[in-house]
Structure formats: structure tokens, C-alpha cells
Amino acid sequence: MTESSVTSDELVTVGRITSVYGVRGWVKVHSYTEPMENILQYAQWWLHNPAASSATKGSAQWQPLEIDAGKHHGKGLIIHIKGVDDRDVAAQFCQRDIAVIGGEMPQLEEGEYYWHQLQGLQVVSVFDGRETPFGEVVRLMETGANDVMVVRGGSDGRERLIPYLPGEYITSVDLTRGVITVDWDPEF
């Protein structure tokens, strides 16, 4: 795939290059995949180009990135960027997001969703027979016990933290309509 044949809409951020590792061009990667090693399974990575202005559309914001090695190291991952064998050159790739083409991500079972599919959806509570708009899912976070949706906006402008527990608090997810229905007290 060439740089000009991918658009930002096709890409899903799956990690970030954080810092250099050693002197031979290796870098540390913070993976957003679960388990973290899954990021190494993607054949083509795209690296965010901070030099592209925010007004730039499509592939100009993303550059193809080839890696020739990657492995688990300590509590994280390290990768080697193809053709980069110098620490100073590798440093130019740090603090940049890594994306893959969303269509290359594994298909999920019915009722399962990737976080990027839930972000931006509107959340509506149906509690005690009342329907209350809560706003938009701005992000999700992992807490150990369960994932939590951070929902902001709605008629009261509040931010709410709602456990992502389908069948308990999450009553339905409709990607077509862009709505998540929850059973959550508006007073919380």
C-alpha cells in the first residue's frame, strides 16, 4: 500500500512510539492492543506526521513505517525501524502515534466492539422510564475491574464515568444510529 492510497478515516491508532532504546535504532512502543503483543501482528504500520498541519487531510498526516523486528522487553515492547541503526535518527520517530488500517483488524464476535467504534457515540440513559441524553463518549479507560466510558456533554454538560458492562449498565449499542443506551441514574 502506498502513502497516497490511505486516508485518515481508514486508520485506527493502535499505539505510540515513546522513546529510544539503546544505541542501534530500537524504540519503545506503548501498545493499545490487548494483549499488547498483537500490535506486532500488523504487516503495515502508519506513523503520524507531526509536520503535517492539522488542516492537512488524508495520508499527508500519516507516513508508512516499516519495522524489521519487534519483541517483548520488560513490561513493554521494543521495535526496530527498518533502515534505522542510529539512536539520534530513531529519536525522530518518538512521541508519535502508530496506526493500522481498520479493515485489517480481526473481526469481533457479535456484541463486541473496539474502543474506537464506541468513541464519539451519543449516550442516552433510560432510567426509571425517563430518557436522558448524557452526551458523547469522549474516551474509554481500563480500570482493572472493567472498562469505563467517559461521557461528556448532554443537557447538563456534566462528565460521567459509566462502567462498560453490557447486560448490566449497557443495554444496547447501535453503531448505525451512533447511540449507546444505558441504564444509569442521571443523578450520578
Rank of each mutant, 00 (worst) to 15 (best):
D86M: 01
V89C: 10
V27F: 03
D86H: 04
G22D: 10
I98G: 01
G22Q: 10
R158L: 14
R96W: 11
R16G: 03
D156S: 11
T143Y: 05
D97A: 09
S5W: 07
Q63C: 08
V151T: 06
T143S: 15
K82W: 05
F134D: 00
F134T: 06
K82I: 00
V100Q: 00
W45Y: 11
G144E: 01
D147R: 12
V148D: 07
Q63W: 08
T132G: 03
R87H: 03
Q63V: 12
I79D: 02
L108W: 00
R160F: 07
I79H: 02
P64V: 13
P166N: 08
D147H: 09
T18N: 00
V123E: 05
Y114L: 11
N38R: 15
D183M: 08
V23S: 15
V179Q: 12
P133A: 01
P163M: 11
L161M: 14
P163R: 13
R24N: 13
S53N: 12
L175C: 13
G167N: 12
H73E: 01
S53R: 13
E187L: 15
W26S: 00
R24Q: 13
V84A: 09
T2K: 12
G70Y: 07
L165I: 14
L165H: 11
F127H: 14
R96G: 02
V137D: 06
T56D: 07
G70H: 05
I170S: 08
D9Q: 13
W62H: 04
M149H: 04
I180G: 13
M36W: 10
T13L: 03
L47M: 14
V100E: 01
W45V: 10
E104F: 02
C94V: 04
R16K: 15
S125M: 12
G154S: 08
P106G: 11
I67S: 04
E131D: 08
R158G: 09
V89H: 07
G129F: 14
A91R: 03
G153D: 02
P106I: 06
E104P: 02
D128G: 11
V173A: 11
V123Y: 00
E142Y: 10
K28P: 03
I79A: 03
V150N: 02
Q117W: 04
Q119H: 12
T171H: 13
S172E: 15
R152G: 02
I39C: 04
S59G: 09
V20R: 00
G58S: 07
V84K: 06
E142N: 14
I17R: 02
I17K: 01
G157H: 08
Y114T: 09
G83E: 04
E3Q: 14
A43Q: 14
S53F: 10
V27A: 01
Q117C: 10
I39G: 01
G25N: 02
S54T: 12
P133M: 06
V151H: 05
E10K: 11
F127N: 10
E159C: 05
